[in-house]
């Protein structure tokens, strides 16, 4: 598929800004997302090809506005819902529940 993820040769993204002594993870929430890759792979819920395809369907604006592990998060959510493992209603309900707890 030829869409926004195919960045090679595009212009105007600015400087690279490498970070000195960069940590492996930048936020705590990145760690579970990284781990799900292995769990869901081992569980047969994802493979490399459907994972890739799900990332390529994220939508241009979301792809450019979000970071690496957010791409993974979006892909996992898509594949878990499409595979019938969970529903978007379940996710929304859990988010509302957790948001309520912290208020």
């Amino acid at each position: 598929m030829n869409s926004i993820h195919d960045l090679g040769g595009m212009e105007g993204f600015g400087p690279i800004n490498p970070e000195e002594n960069e940590a492996t993870f930048h936020y705590e929430w990145e760690k579970p997302i990284f781990g799900w890759f292995f769990s869901l792979f081992a569980g047969g819920i994802i493979n490399v090809d459907v994972f890739r395809h799900a990332i390529e369907r994220l939508g241009n604006q979301h792809y450019l506005e979000s970071s690496y592990y957010e791409h993974w998060l979006g892909a996992f959510e898509t594949l878990l819902v499409e595979g019938g493992t969970i529903t978007t209603e379940e996710i929304d309900a859990k988010m509302a529940e957790l948001a309520g707890e912290t208020q």
Partner: peptide
């Protein structure tokens, strides 16, 4: 992160653990 990313991760993690699809210790 996007505004709801952290909450979304916590929600998904909670559901995946409930369904026994991920093991937090292994992660």
């Amino acid at each position: 992160p996007l505004p709801d990313t952290e909450l979304r991760v916590r929600a998904l993690e909670s559901i995946l653990v409930e369904k026994d699809l991920v093991d937090p210790a292994a992660i």
